[in-house]
Design a protein around this nucleic acid. Structure first.
Lengths: 350, 350
DNA sequence: TCGGGAGCGGAGAGCGCTCTCCCTCTGTGC
DNA sequence: GCACAGAGGGAGAGCGCTCTCCGCTCCCGA
């Protein structure tokens, strides 16, 4: 009776449930994991016993024998040249985008009882650690937010053939799963909208052109404008920052004062663009129509509010989680990609 | 030699290290965990063997026997009346604040190898689940971001006497650890700054007065102004939202057009305030000086940039993690609170 | 010289679970 | 009526680790 002295302290185990249900440990395990056919009556008896005892499987014990942890990591990879505690990483975290991804991923993970561990990979060493963490079974797989085009992490993950899903197409082609948005289509939505408004002098402020998102948004927009009969579209690199957006808009205004429509490759840059336009005495959208990209919360913070191309971040993040869970489940080494359609969210700026 | 057929597949275990080092499993364990005095020479031999084999302790096995998981949860508790997948939760995640907390917590956790699991508690059931998760050893403890004054989670955690640390003082007094900022002092910084500027007609836009932060920032400001000889300060409730800030500022301007200095209880509200002031043709800071609170990224997004009371979010979050780890380590049920000093970050708006 | 204690390392028992065997029992076909 | 298949359930091994015992060695003082 030693073990019964502190019944409130000791958590119920399989053994306890088995005893209450009058079956063996193995049977309880089968019921809990839905394995093989267990007699329906017994099935119910076991579940009743589970409820009665308040039994919850012990993760550690289960992990130990299955070799799975029931946890995946969300890796925010900042690796390139900055230290992990660099203020810049904080700045990224400050971006609304991060939280939306977390929300999307968790919406899928919660029902399946999988934990989400947060990991920051600030440099190449940290990236290597991420890979070894997966191989050593600290987590079953990773979803990755990679912030730089030269981030070594995607390559490392692909080489290690480890369960992983990226947010956004990797900068270089490699065998790794990812979700992305149909950027060309999004840029086309913006182009068509500006044309439909009657804009005669359209320009674009692009993101960094060494990032897939930067290149695709620029090229997609140009292509769509070409289809509309506009052969040339001036473009300025805003580097995906608010500050960069301001500088780019200043140059655009200086060199093309006749501009009456701008496609800005991110909402954050668009914030800067709006500021510059206001200071230049240009009314939005009457003098200059502005369209952003992402539909982040920045789009709601501007006045007038920003018309933008909506990237379904939450849905994409949820799909990442789904792809990863499938991959882990099947233990097969197949890579997949899922591309989402963007929408145009028409607000006041265009 | 069965087990040696696929040496690349099987991860090294304590046993393997022991064999290489020529000692027993127990000794390797002692070395790894720094327990008792092990002969320094042997110590080195063991570490060499660890390096040689590439051994990494198996979390699950360790957990199983120690009863610790080596993971803590960051709980974002939205519990009050909304469902977990409600868009509002997404909106919270969009707030820069969240990411800063994560960064701070991780900076402490990473060195100690503790995992950070993200948990969303959208309703009271989810809160109960959080508590049982800790009791059932899914995680060793929790750090909590509680978003509503009537959130049941802090109470549940306190009652269960579970290792937990809150961000911000709980709405009602209870035995639970927390970190907070010296709000009165912060409000005083703002008051003194406005007075020093020569503002004659000072008002404040407060947050929700049913939240500790809302009440304290308002009362602290009033008290500080009183000390400066200003007996009455008009106040308007902006509910901690940008929209609410706009409405409050509109009313303030209508009822006190002579206002020349405003303390706004959050940067997000201040964004709205700035918009309204601009539309009303008031120059900031010449006509009206504006001071915010938080030093969030919203403070950098306004033009002119916002003078604000800086809440050292990252430091506070780091301290939360530290307090929690200590609490878990000692297994003692003592509650502590740590209060941080705010700074005034002088930018252009005041 | 010997007893005793401190220091150090090994043996071995589990932690709670899954999963492979194997046994039992029922039902079916000849 | 018997062999056999097949399904349901039990026994038990063992996942990798920690930690309690226990025994050995070595040094010191008597």
């Amino acid at each position: 009776m030693t073990s019964d002295q502190t019944p409130a302290q000791r958590l119920p185990t399989l053994e306890d449930v088995a005893q209450v249900a009058g079956v063996s440990r193995a049977t309880v395990s089968r019921v809990i994991n839905n394995i093989r056919n267990v007699d329906p009556q017994l099935h119910k008896v076991v579940w009743d016993a589970v409820t009665a005892t308040g039994y919850v499987p012990n993760r550690a014990a289960r992990s130990l024998v299955t070799g799975r942890t029931g946890a995946i990591a969300l890796v925010v990879s900042e690796a390139e040249n900055r230290a992990a505690d660099d203020p810049f990483l904080g700045a990224f975290f400050s971006d609304p985008f991060f939280g939306r991804v977390v929300g999307g991923v968790l919406s899928v993970l919660r029902p399946s009882g999988v934990h989400l561990a947060l990991v920051l990979a600030g440099d190449e060493d940290a990236c290597a650690k991420v890979v070894s963490d997966v191989r050593q079974g600290q987590v079953d797989g990773v979803v990755v937010l990679s912030l730089h085009p030269h981030d070594p992490l995607p390559r490392l993950l692909a080489d290690a053939a480890v369960p992983a899903v990226l947010y956004g197409r990797p900068a270089a082609p490699m065998p790794i799963s990812y979700v992305d948005v149909a950027t060309y289509q999004g840029a086309k939505l913006a182009a068509d909208h500006l044309i439909a408004r009657g804009c005669q002098h359209v320009a674009t402020i692009s993101g960094s052109v060494d990032m897939p998102a930067g290149v695709d948004r620029l090229n997609g927009f140009r292509e769509a404008m070409a289809k509309q009969g506009v052969a040339y579209v001036p473009s300025y690199d805003g580097g995906f920052t608010q500050e960069g957006g301001e500088r780019a808009m200043e140059r655009l205004l200086a060199e093309h004062p006749e501009v009456d429509g701008v496609f800005v490759a991110s909402d954050v840059m668009a914030q800067g663009v709006m500021t510059v336009l206001r200071e230049a005495g240009k009314a939005v959208p009457d003098d200059v129509a502005v369209i952003g990209f992402d539909d982040s919360s920045a789009a709601l913070a501007t006045r007038p509010q920003l018309t933008t191309v909506r990237q379904p971040v939450e849905d994409m993040a949820a799909e990442m989680a789904r792809l990863l869970l499938t991959r882990i489940d099947q233990r097969a080494n197949r890579t997949t990609s899922v591309i989402f359609d963007p929408d145009l969210v028409a607000r006041a700026s265009a």
